[in-house]
Design a protein around this nucleic acid. Structure first.
Lengths: 215, 215
DNA sequence: GCGTGACTTCATATACTCTTGAAGAAGTCC
DNA sequence: GGACTTCTTCAAGAGTATATGAAGTCACGC
């Protein structure tokens, strides 16, 4: 079964390493640092559960447990102990591959941002670098766009002026912090935001700015 | 079944919102931005698959599909389209809860450091620079916020006035120590803390202040 | 070159926060 | 209870942060 799985996953485009015992698995995981681990519950020398627990102490990799034990309580133990998914034999290899890909997507997750954000009556499209309000396009400069996108990606979260400048321009930006005030002013004007009571870009005195959470 | 699930997950500590149609689900997801979505394949008006696809365009939330269709190809479609997990009916609610928790663990990501503190009926969010009591936001000044955060990060630990001033303002603060008394007074007033018998910010005579331990 | 648009800086007005000290209340110790 | 220390309260002035308009710098295409 191990060989079958190895061959199939390799054909699906994964780079696969295998181990026969729990000890071996841990050793390989430590040296090779895989993105994903497929773990059988029943292993010689060390149970899959123990391997899972030990792995979790040093690694954030995705773990899918695979086993013949279909008891509900076993599944729950596996999941609570740190596994991301739990498959009961028999299962299809294609399903395993799909679950691995889904998990991988999640692991890589936070980086790949959605291609557009919809907030209130604004649509912010990263792919097109364009912003629409009520269906009408608003012309923004590149810097303004990046600032707005950074803010709108996490509504309610407060960003300092420096954080925003670093996000919008170079990461090593070392200029005048008040520059951000000007960009914010221009953004608010273009978005039709009332500075006294802003709907989109709100000032957080002493900290910076945030994108307003709609209620 | 919807009601049963709602009740069970609520008992497990999740805050649950429900929708009966796909359209409704999308509307709620957009306005409430849930961390997790449990999605049935068969929905009136819009299929779970469509909802999943649309959700993924704007949201990075965890999605578990739940369905009576146990076809391998259905599972694979669901997973490839953006769902994180796929459960076939009948399934146990306890397993669902475990899978939700596993997914949540993954969503919250590698930075295991929580960005907010929850004390008693207060929620102190560092990312949002905002404090809520009983769900209502309390407006604090930057200094007040930093003092409260410092205290609440270590309940029961006593901080001297100077320590708190250095934490909240510059580390080289060299002013009048009694300044802290004013900030504490303002904080207690805003938090609704009775100075004679404070619940949150307690005076330690001769030493300083501490955040009250609750248990 | 010159004009244009994008970004930055500056000066000023305005808004908000922090600090201060003194008086009185509360706590501690003998 | 008395003497002493420490804490709370208060309001006004000093101090700091933000908004805004205008002007300066820079790169790019014509």
């Amino acid at each position: 079964m191990l060989e079958e799985m190895h061959a199939f996953l390799q054909r699906e485009g994964f780079r696969v390493l295998t181990a026969v015992t729990g000890k071996e698995a841990l050793a390989i995981a430590r040296s090779e640092r895989p993105d994903l681990v497929v773990l059988d519950w029943m292993l010689p020398e060390k149970s899959g559960i123990d391997v899972c627990r030990e792995l979790r102490q040093t690694s954030n990799c995705g773990i899918i447990m695979v086993t013949a034990r279909s008891d509900e309580s076993d599944k729950i133990v596996g999941l609570e102990i740190g596994a991301d998914d739990y498959l009961t034999k028999p299962f299809s290899l294609r399903e395993l591959a799909s679950r691995l890909r889904a998990l991988l997507r999640r692991l890589r997750g936070p980086e790949d941002r959605p291609t557009f954000l919809e907030r209130d009556n604004l649509i912010i499209s990263e792919a097109k670098c364009q912003v629409c309000k009520d269906g009408r396009e608003i012309q923004l400069t590149p810097t303004e766009f990046k600032i707005l996108y950074t803010l709108a990606a996490r509504p309610g979260m407060v960003f300092s002026r420096l954080q925003l400048l670093k996000a919008a321009l170079a990461d090593e930006y070392m200029g005048y912090e008040r520059t951000m005030d000007s960009h914010i002013r221009n953004l608010r004007r273009k978005l039709g935001d009332d500075p006294a009571n802003p709907r989109y870009i709100q000032t957080v005195y002493g900290f910076g700015y945030r994108f307003g959470e709609q209620s």
